Amino acid sequence: MDIVSFVETLAGKWFSQRTTHYLASQTSKAGQSNLMMEVLPATDASLVQVCAAQGQDPAHIACGLKVDQDSRMDGDTRNTQRTTVMVMLQPTAEGKGILLQSTPQAPVIQGEYGLDNAVLTLTTQTPDGTVQERLWFANPNLRMRTSVFKVGDTEQMASFCSEIRLGGAPAQG
């Protein structure tokens, strides 16, 4: 499976159930999200704009994804809403490539992705530390996602999500 095929499997409306564990305080929180994921063609103006912000050649775009997220952690009184545009540039022969992410609240962040045995790994450096996220499918309509946030070599937070496709795109396979 290549990156374009994998990203195409992400399309649709998803319900996400998340547990986040904060390692320093040994506390956990649960949360839920509704996600709408739309695959964008390589020629989409928003993808070209994200590339321009990072000085990347839009001719190297492999695919893109727009993610609309509406989330709430247990105990919060308000939902968090965010839109993220993700651009995957053409991968190397090993299946690794540059990942660009943009939200209206933050400048474009550059990271990397790798696709190995139908598991997508996203690694992003932020001003606060490194986030590594892994996504894979248990079946076409059930997706698993983990993330780990590190400061230096110390893991600060870990989360696990199970995500169920609610519609919006045909199930594969």
Rank of each mutant, 00 (worst) to 15 (best):
D57G: 04
L115W: 04
A30K: 15
S162Y: 08
S28D: 07
Q101W: 01
T124K: 06
V108E: 01
L47A: 01
G75V: 04
H21G: 03
P104I: 02
L65D: 06
K66C: 05
C161S: 13
L99V: 07
R78D: 13
C63E: 07
S159N: 10
R134D: 04
A45Y: 05
R78K: 12
N139F: 04
L166Y: 05
H21K: 14
T130W: 06
F149G: 03
R143E: 11
T123L: 07
G97R: 01
T121N: 05
I3R: 00
F137I: 10
D76F: 09
Q81I: 08
E155K: 15
I61L: 00
D2P: 00
T126F: 06
S159I: 09
K29H: 11
L23E: 10
L47E: 00
V4T: 13
Q26N: 15
M1E: 14
R72Y: 03
D57V: 00
E94G: 06
V85R: 00
R165F: 02
T130A: 02
V4K: 14
Q54N: 09
A106M: 09
M144F: 15
S159K: 02
S25Q: 11
L40F: 00
L10I: 01
D116V: 10
D68H: 09
S102G: 03
M86D: 06
G31E: 05
G64H: 00
P58M: 05
V148G: 12
T124Q: 14
S71G: 07
T154C: 14
M86R: 03
A138G: 08
I164D: 09
V148L: 14
M1D: 12
V119K: 05
T9A: 12
T84F: 05
T27R: 07
H60E: 07
D128H: 14
Y113S: 04
V7K: 11
P91V: 02
D44L: 00
Q110Y: 01
T43S: 14
T103K: 13
A52P: 10
V50I: 08
T92F: 06
A169H: 10
D2K: 01
L135G: 03
G111C: 04
S147H: 06
K150R: 15
P140E: 06
S46F: 00
V119A: 02
L115M: 06
Q32N: 15
